[in-house]
Amino acid sequence: MTVSWIQHRFAGGALALDTANTVVLRGDPYRGFDRFEDRAEIARFAEAAGAFRAAELGGRRLEAREPERIAPVVLEIREATDRLFREAVLEGSFESNHLSDFLAACSKGTAGARGKIGGEKRPFGDPATPLAFEAALAVSALSLLGGDTMRRLRICANCRWLFVDRSRNSSRLWCDMAVCGNRRKASRHYHRRKDTREADRG
């Protein structure tokens, strides 16, 4: 089924986290699923990311012409990123072998780049030319290790997606207040009313 790559799917705050979040309800054997199961969605995701992550990418367009070919590297970076940073949020530290796997996966991603990347003002390189999606994914993932991003990483209280909390007081609970926040509030309201009705019957 074709995925609608709307703004909500880019609520992670960084390309690497948005990509990690393409596994929905991760860890749930009954309801979880992978939006990249159809490899063609990698190319469609990359195209949408060029618009929704334009500021992060410095306006550089992403290229994912052969999704079947790049899928193994993309998925390896995605899984290593989710494992490493989910662990960081839950435990406050990394397993050394998980960090090693993450760096190795990112190295494979940057092997797909042409030209210069990693500059201070242009980490994704020259915006005049397209960048391989797997290389951009690696650059985004590696950037999560720097600055104060690590301490701002969160796991959404509703959907369990990873996201960067850029609120002033670092108190966000939801990846997207308009979606997950409202869903959780609606769920709480429903259960309160249900409890009240049951209490009245008793």
Rank of each mutant, 00 (worst) to 15 (best):
G109M: 05
G109V: 00
T110Q: 01
L90D: 07
E95N: 08
A105K: 04
A105V: 03
F94S: 06
V89R: 06
K108T: 02
S107P: 12
A113E: 04
S107L: 15
A105M: 00
G112V: 08
S93V: 12
S100C: 13
E91C: 10
S96T: 14
S93Q: 13
H98T: 10
A104P: 07
L103C: 11
S107C: 13
S96A: 12
A88N: 14
V89Q: 08
H98V: 11
E87Q: 11
E91G: 08
A88E: 13
N97Q: 14
F94A: 12
L99C: 04
A88T: 07
L90F: 09
L90S: 03
S96N: 14
A104N: 09
T110V: 10
L99E: 07
S93E: 08
K108W: 09
G109E: 02
D101N: 11
E87P: 11
L103A: 09
R114C: 05
N97R: 15
A113M: 07
F102M: 10
L99R: 04
D101R: 12
E87M: 06
G109A: 01
K108D: 09
R114P: 07
A105H: 00
S107N: 15
A113Y: 03
F102H: 03
N97T: 14
S100L: 09
E87G: 11
R86Y: 05
D101H: 10
F94W: 08
T110D: 03
N97P: 08
L90H: 07
H98L: 15
G92Q: 03
A104G: 08
A88F: 15
L103Q: 10
A104K: 10
R86M: 01
E87R: 15
L103T: 08
E91M: 13
S93R: 13
E95T: 11
A113F: 02
H98W: 15
L90N: 06
E95R: 13
V89F: 08
C106I: 04
E87D: 06
E91A: 14
F94K: 09
A88V: 09
G112N: 01
F94L: 01
H98S: 15
R86L: 01
G109F: 02
V89L: 04
L103P: 06
R114K: 11
A104E: 10
A113K: 01
K108G: 06
F102L: 03
E95K: 01
D101T: 11
C106D: 00
T110Y: 06
A88H: 09
E95V: 09
L90V: 05
R86C: 00
D101C: 05
V89I: 04
E91V: 13
R114G: 14
A88W: 12
V89K: 01
